[in-house]
Design a protein around this nucleic acid. Structure first.
Lengths: 196, 196
DNA sequence: ATAAATGTTTACCGATTGGTACAATAAAGC
DNA sequence: GCTTTATTGTACCAATCGGTAAACATTTAT
């Protein structure tokens, strides 16, 4: 094999950051080439499908990360309470307290949504279902757990939008604190937000 | 004056819909020209500043609509409770139960955020402050009202992201119902979400 | 009627877009 | 040491990008 400056898997996180910063349309091939240090030839060698395949792989990698770091512990962990707490911590770290955008959320609002609709839907659907399962194991009934999980995920996404719009990480941190207390409030005490 | 097929003010809502569908970068001038029925020359006659001016005017118009239909009643209306209820109704209608994207929220996640950062920040900041004032008039203390208002706006934005990602308007409607009850819960009963 | 103001159309600009072709290069296997 | 195979750089492509120029049409004020 010839000289390997970078493997395909090394390039994907760089691509992810580029898409996050510039969006799908805004990330031109020349920009990608210069930021990755790879020529167009190499890029199309690694990703024959072009920009669309690059973005697909990025989405897959993000989904994989969340699957391992967040979803799986929520579903299979011994302690659902601890998994939920860990989710909040992971999410806050991952999104750099709101400074880093959720690429999948951004794609959902973009016109490229249709192109990646399956990946986008799965990402949120699996997250919601995993969180719901953890809540059920805490003692909530299924419907209530579904509602709470939905509200938590949507609050995180909204927090990313609002903290970025106001350029204020405190917005994100306050929202995460609210999400955490909302998720960990037991099934006995109502929280006035999701239910009867 | 020469023949007027469309006034500037007539074009702006069309532009808004184009930007909503395709994003800032995705809305090419030729697309804009064909959708508005105006040639490039006419476009640049109405908007000498080009695409950036078109987007600015769209943002201004959106802000103006919210100012009249939502913010002002929240601040100055006789009945703050009614104004809050009306806000929820207006928002649900405006966003077509989640099928229509919040252009300003989408811009906030996009790389064009820097270009329109002032308009984006003001839109959300004024919304939050107006809603906070209404909550204070209901009887909340200032800090608590600020927190509740922030949570409501962020939930709406997150609901738009999530309902679009899952392609399910029910997500948006459930979220709006939660927002409404959260906003209208009196200052006496805690709601477990924003509380001390 | 005519001049001036106001829109509109069309052709065009250089730059950049995503993508392709292909030769050059470098290492691994024999 | 030669061939094979995987990677890279360069040149190039048609298409489209945002934007400009200027001739052209239409209407109002005089």
């Amino acid at each position: 094999m010839p000289k390997i400056i970078a493997e395909r898997s090394d390039v994907i996180p760089v691509l992810a950051e580029i898409f996050r910063e510039y969006g799908y349309e805004g990330a031109s091939l020349s920009l990608i080439a210069s930021r990755t240090g790879l020529g167009k030839g190499s890029l199309y060698h690694f990703f024959p499908g072009g920009k669309e395949e690059m973005a697909s792989e990025v989405l897959r990698e993000i989904d994989g990360w969340f699957e391992d770091a967040v979803y799986k512990p929520l579903r299979d962990g011994d302690d659902p309470r601890a998994a939920i707490l860990e989710m909040c911590r992971s999410v806050a770290t991952y999104f750099w307290s709101g400074k880093r955008v959720c690429l999948i959320g951004a794609f959902a609002l973009d016109n490229v949504r249709d192109r990646f609709s399956d990946a986008i839907r799965d990402y949120f659907a699996v997250w919601q279902r995993s969180l719901q399962q953890a809540l059920v194991r805490i003692g909530h009934d299924a419907d209530r757990a579904s509602d709470i999980a939905e509200d938590a995920i949507l609050s995180i996404q909204g927090a990313l939008v609002l903290s970025r719009a106001l350029d204020d990480t405190a917005v994100f941190e306050r929202a995460m604190a609210r999400v955490e207390t909302g998720l960990l409030a037991g099934p006995d005490q109502g929280n006035g937000r999701t239910g009867p």
